[in-house]
Amino acid sequence: MSTAINFTLQRNDFGHLSLTDANGLTHDNVVPVRASPISAPTEGISLMGQDGHEIVWVEQLDELPPAVRQLIEEELATREFMPQIQRLIKVSSFATPSTWTVETDRGEASFILKGEEDIRRLPGGILLVADAHGIQFMIRQLSELDRHSRKLLDRFL
Rank of each mutant, 00 (worst) to 15 (best):
98 S>G: 06
99 T>M: 07
104 T>H: 03
96 T>Y: 04
111 F>N: 03
109 A>L: 12
81 F>I: 12
113 L>F: 01
91 V>S: 03
94 F>I: 07
110 S>G: 11
109 A>P: 05
119 I>F: 08
116 E>P: 01
96 T>M: 04
81 F>A: 11
85 I>V: 04
81 F>D: 08
114 K>V: 00
99 T>C: 09
95 A>E: 10
97 P>I: 06
84 Q>T: 15
86 Q>N: 09
84 Q>K: 11
109 A>G: 04
93 S>W: 01
112 I>T: 15
97 P>N: 08
90 K>Q: 08
93 S>M: 09
85 I>F: 08
80 E>K: 14
117 E>P: 13
99 T>H: 10
111 F>P: 04
104 T>P: 03
82 M>S: 13
88 L>W: 01
88 L>M: 09
92 S>Y: 13
106 R>Q: 12
111 F>V: 08
107 G>I: 00
98 S>W: 07
90 K>G: 05
110 S>D: 05
102 V>K: 03
118 D>A: 14
91 V>R: 01
122 L>A: 06
91 V>K: 01
80 E>N: 12
99 T>E: 08
90 K>V: 04
82 M>V: 12
101 T>A: 12
106 R>A: 08
84 Q>N: 12
106 R>S: 04
98 S>R: 09
107 G>S: 06
112 I>Y: 03
99 T>S: 07
106 R>H: 10
